[in-house]
Design a protein around this nucleic acid. Structure first.
Length: 335
DNA sequence: CGGTAGCCTGTGTG
DNA sequence: ACACACAGGCTAC
């Protein structure tokens, strides 16, 4: 019943599998749409809600059900992998080895504000993302809106990634390897395509990585402890403290990293560190103070706890926006 | 050393 | 229609 409409003669894949998992352990909406990855789209297949996105060089469709996640995989090579292999990839991407219930309990005990946020934002997970994708996506994210970041990441994949497959008339691409982003004329092309000053950062960072070992540079980065990894990321043009911490948290497994962006700064001054409210800008000193505060409050996985707060704040923000819109529409209808 | 002006431009708002 | 502010920051000064 789940294969309705899919052309299985063309694509050998497209068969539904299930990953068993409690809903309290994974909430797809908050996890995939919370600003961690910019590659997921929500598809309303009423009454179901599905998510389509790319990771591990494959196209995935995910759907939350009572006792887990239904998923199917599309990929280019004809030979299909065994279900266990896909299960393992998805488990890894969703970081399912980390059990969330006891963590939420600890954080809730320590922080009533977290406790409140956790009611609606259960099952928020830190994804284990591809390092290259993480680096270049978050270079795009600086001083930018999520909607625009999303379209920029999509452009990177279309321009420099490999095509995976077509689904419902849309072509999907892998996120490009570093060498592609380091090729000639990348800066030019990206600038023409609306990347602004980030075009140079992407090109320069890609070239820097290639000049310093390419894949080996990426691989070595994974072996470093948090402070060293962060320091090395900071040597890339266009990566500052916030983006470096995003990468440490989301693809290097340093769950104590706290990316302090405008949202977290607002949250910190509002609820936790009111004395900072008079500060105009987040200096390095303030940045570290905020991170240290949350690390003391939440412990070694503070970055995970912070992401839950971030999601709650982002959701509030989005709700405000849509409230305004519907209000506006209503007014228009009335008149 | 701490602080901040300037940066590209798409998107949303007045 | 047409401004105008501002975005999950960073670099250079």
């Amino acid at each position: 019943m789940f294969n309705g409409g899919l052309n299985e003669t063309v694509n050998m894949n497209g068969k539904w599998f299930k990953l068993l998992c409690k809903n309290t352990e994974v909430q797809l909406t908050g996890t995939l749409n919370g600003g961690q990855s910019f590659r997921w789209r929500k598809v309303e297949k009423s009454p179901e809600q599905q998510w389509i996105g790319v990771f591990a060089d494959k196209l995935w469709t995910l759907q939350q059900v009572d006792d887990g996640i239904l998923y199917k995989v599309n990929e280019n090579n004809v030979k299909t992998c065994p279900e266990e292999h896909y299960n393992e990839l998805l488990r890894n991407y969703l970081n399912l080895d980390v059990e969330l219930a006891p963590l939420y309990e600890q954080w809730s005990e320590k922080d009533p504000n977290f406790c409140e946020a956790a009611k609606q934002f259960y099952g928020i997970r830190i994804l284990r993302q591809d390092i290259t994708e993480n680096i270049f996506s978050f270079i795009c994210s600086q001083n930018n809106h999520i909607s625009r970041i999303t379209s920029m990441v999509e452009k990177l994949a279309t321009f420099y990634g490999d095509q995976i497959c077509d689904l419902d008339g849309i072509s999907y691409y892998t996120f490009p390897k570093v060498d592609k982003l380091a090729s000639d004329d990348v800066e030019n092309k990206l600038r023409k395509n609306g990347f602004g000053y980030r075009a140079k950062y992407i090109s320069q960072s890609a070239k820097f990585i290639m000049d310093n070992g390419g894949e080996k540079w990426i691989h070595d980065l994974q072996q470093l402890e948090y402070p060293e990894a962060k320091k090395r990321l900071l040597s890339l043009m266009g990566i500052g403290a916030k983006v470096a911490d995003c990468i440490c948290l989301m693809s290097l497994g340093h769950l104590q990293a706290i990316p302090v962006d405008t949202h977290i700064y607002q949250i910190a001054t509002r609820w936790y560190m009111p004395k900072l409210a008079k500060q105009k800008t987040v200096t390095e000193k303030i940045y570290n103070e905020i991170g240290d505060y949350f690390r003391t409050l939440y412990g070694p996985l503070a970055g995970w706890a912070h992401t839950v707060l971030f999601c709650a704040d982002l959701k509030k923000f989005q709700e405000n926006q849509s409230e305004k819109k519907s209000h506006k529409r209503k007014k228009k209808e009335d008149s």
